[in-house]
Simulated scan of single mutants.
Amino acid sequence: MRQRITPINFIKKNWLLSGILFCILLAALFPKFGSKEGPLKTEYSVKYGAVSLMFLISGFSLKTDSIFDTFGRYRLHLFIQIFTFVFVPIYTQCFVKFLSIFGINGWILKGLITVACMPPPVSSAVILTRAAQGNETVAIFNSVVGSFLGIIITPILLLFNLGSTTIVPLFGTVRQLTITVLLPLILGQFLKIFSNIKGHRLPLNSISQGALLFVIYTTFCDTFLVPETGLSALDVIFTIFSVMLLQVVLLTLSFKIANYFKQSFHPSDVIAIVFCATHKSLTLGIPILRIMFHGYSHLSQISLPLLIYHPTQIILGGLLVSQLKDWLQSKKNKKLPV
């Protein structure tokens, strides 16, 4: 007998998605509280607090053997990085050619191409992979590697795709990634190996997802406080529709293509691929756009696709978590002896 679906059951099964929607509502009602100028001091509480906490928990939770095993899986890593930095820009160029037929604002189309050239984020893809019970080690490795590669590859991609480029702040980006990602991961591993708290009952997964929700809330607070862009309502609607369509297609293609290579990728790897290969970094993207198009009157129009892409990937990711988790469980059940 099938369990009756009630609002309570839906929230329990999709609590991360429910939390994301609640954070969006909260940010819409109280945007100044969680903004950069607000009392939460997000430049410290998010960057060095919530994000570092997520990776500290990841470092504590990861099996040391799985870390060393991940280093040798070069085919999997190549697939993710090639999809991120080669396939996505090429596909987006074709997608933009199609959209130009409908007379969409040319600066918005440039903004879509810019988004496609960005590296993956180091937080949302990892936490969503973990929430869907995917291969978290692979997600962490490729998010970190992708972010470092983006320092070099993103300017080159922008040069080829837009005919203009910029110098990414190398030292600042490396320093931030080291402090907020690598050091917490290493510290988490040291705590796991050398501490006496291995038998803990702390809800680490819930704490980590709670930290992600805090990041999402503050991100949306800043999004809702963005000044008027000067775009028409039709331009904004077209941008939202274009970004959602682009992401849905990329999520579907990444899943289908990765799942095709069943002999090379485990189902848990496929989940990591879906999130890591399609997500794009707002943290690195916005500074790049501000450097590239400083003084341009069209900066707000170029930035709009990235501002929409970031929250949309989180919302769509939240929607996919329970489906991917069920899909993974079905794959495991097929392998069980009858």
Rank of each mutant, 00 (worst) to 15 (best):
Q3P: 00
P7N: 09
I8G: 01
N9F: 10
F10M: 11
F10N: 03
K13E: 13
N14F: 10
N14T: 05
N14H: 15
L17E: 01
L17K: 04
L17G: 01
S18N: 05
F33L: 15
F33Y: 15
K36A: 08
P39Q: 04
L40F: 14
K41A: 02
V46Q: 14
V51A: 08
S52M: 11
M54C: 11
G59K: 04
F60N: 10
L62S: 15
S66Y: 10
I67Q: 09
T70M: 14
Y74T: 13
L76Y: 14
H77I: 12
H77N: 07
F79I: 02
F83V: 02
F85A: 03
V88W: 03
P89K: 06
I90S: 04
K97E: 07
F98L: 15
G103M: 07
I104E: 02
N105M: 01
N105C: 01
G111F: 10
I113F: 03
V115F: 06
S123P: 00
V126M: 08
R130K: 10
A132E: 02
E136P: 06
V138Y: 13
N142H: 08
F148V: 14
F148M: 13
T154R: 03
L162N: 05
I167T: 13
L170E: 03
T173G: 04
T173P: 03
R175G: 00
Q176L: 14
T178W: 14
T180D: 07
V181W: 07
P184N: 08
L187N: 07
Q189Y: 13
S195G: 03
N196I: 02
L204A: 06
I207M: 14
S208H: 04
Q209Y: 06
Q209A: 07
T219V: 00
P227W: 13
P227A: 09
L231K: 07
L231N: 05
S232G: 11
I237A: 11
F238N: 09
F241L: 10
V243A: 00
V243E: 00
L245A: 13
V249W: 10
V249N: 05
L250W: 14
L251D: 03
T252W: 06
A258E: 04
F261K: 11
S264R: 08
F265N: 04
H266L: 09
S268L: 06
F275A: 07
F275Q: 09
A277V: 11
S281N: 15
G285F: 12
G285D: 08
P287R: 09
I288A: 03
I291H: 12
I291M: 13
Y296G: 00
Y296C: 02
S297L: 04
S297E: 08
I302R: 05
L307P: 02
I308L: 08
Y309D: 02
P311Q: 11
T312S: 14
S322N: 07
Q323E: 01
K332I: 02
N333K: 08
K334C: 06
K334Y: 09
V338D: 11
